[in-house]
């Protein structure tokens, strides 16, 4: 009887561990190997969410690494007044760019490749704090 119960217990614990895989998305930062001063931005067509996140905050004078991950179609990326066009980012491609903002303020990040009918709306905000 004890042996039977032990197997049921082992089974139950294993089942809970397997169901724990539902929490997989919570480990995004670890799975992406995110470093300090690194910001991951995922690029989706505007209809599918656009820039994720759509707003980032950085510090003036501090170098920031942007990890741009193409999600669905080919996109481009630039931050008006802070960073030139980085070129195309294909679906599944990861492009890492660095920049050091020299002035504070609010800037606009945008897609530079016609990516969907709502391409012109694919913008986000970069806040540079003192």
């Amino acid at each position: 009887m004890k042996k039977v119960l032990m197997w049921e217990f082992v089974g139950f614990v294993s089942l809970l561990l397997v169901l724990g895989a539902f929490s997989m998305p919570l480990f995004d930062d670890q799975f992406m190997g995110k470093q300090e001063n690194e910001i991951i931005i995922r690029l989706n067509a505007e209809e599918a969410g656009g820039f994720m996140p759509g707003e980032i905050t950085v510090k003036k004078g501090e170098t920031v690494k942007l990890v741009l991950v193409g999600q669905d179609v080919t996109h481009g990326f630039k931050i008006e007044g802070l960073m030139d066009d980085v070129g195309t980012i294909n679906p599944g491609e990861k492009k890492i760019v660095e920049f050091t903002p020299q002035e504070s303020g609010v800037f606009v990040m945008m897609c530079t490749v016609y990516c969907s009918p709502n391409h012109h709306k694919m913008t986000g905000t970069v806040i540079v704090e003192d």
């Binding site: 992406m32 991951i40 991950v69 599944g92």
Partner: peptide, 10 residues
């Protein structure tokens, strides 16, 4: 390697 399609390479 990248089940969510988020750029992982597990």
């Amino acid at each position: 390697s990248d089940p969510m399609g988020w750029g992982w390479d597990l």
